[in-house]
């Protein structure tokens, strides 16, 4: 049911032409997803999604909306080619889903390989109970380092873009 709600919210986000509404709806969407994650036993992820999707993203988009027009001006723009591409992609995914393993089944490959190691060995290896933290910061720590670099890169990029003083519409040479 939560998923159905998500679909409705998602559609609403796409269809509204008021960006402020879209942003708010997007925040709701993110919060719902966070709830879904919590239901799926992913506490860490839920916390993060709530903080990021509903928190930071929303604040940032609002900050940008303070600088840019609130309404879309482009005409309704539903194009057939796009619809075809989306349909094909979706059809491919549905086709794939037919062979995906049963949802939540402990016999799924995901729960047979690698995953169990973390569940069984984390405490023996590091003596901490939170497996997510263990995998994140030790077993797959280079990924997490990458993650830190990603956020820093974005920070540097935004800094490079916005730390200069704005000027009036300038053509060509900035």
């Amino acid at each position: 049911m939560l998923l159905l709600f998500l679909v409705v919210v998602g559609l609403a986000v796409v269809l509204t032409r008021d960006l402020l509404k879209a942003t708010m709806l997007f925040a709701i969407y993110s919060l719902t997803i966070a709830g879904l994650f919590a239901l799926l036993d992913a506490g860490d992820v839920a916390l993060t999604e709530a903080a990021v999707g509903a928190g930071i993203s929303t604040v940032l988009i609002l900050a940008v909306l303070a600088l840019t027009p609130r309404f879309e001006t482009t005409k309704a723009g539903h194009s057939l080619p796009a619809l075809v591409i989306v349909t094909i992609t979706g059809a491919a995914l549905v086709y794939a889903s037919l062979d995906l393993p049963q949802f939540g089944d402990p016999a799924n490959p995901v729960h047979q390989h690698v995953g169990p190691y973390y569940i069984e060995q984390t405490y023996a290896d590091m003596g901490i109970p939170n497996m997510v933290a263990a995998v994140l910061a030790s077993y797959r720590s280079i990924d997490t380092m990458g993650e830190a670099v990603v956020i820093l890169t974005a920070g540097l990029g935004v800094y490079a873009l916005l730390a200069t003083r704005p000027r009036r519409r300038d053509k060509g040479d900035r």
Binding site: G146, V150, T153, G157, L161, D170, K171, G172
Partner: peptide, 21 residues
Amino acid sequence: FVFLEISSLATYGLIAHGRDR
């Protein structure tokens, strides 16, 4: 995937350094 995003984000930032709008 992670490193692809690292390089991509850095690249977007670098391209935006171009002088033309």
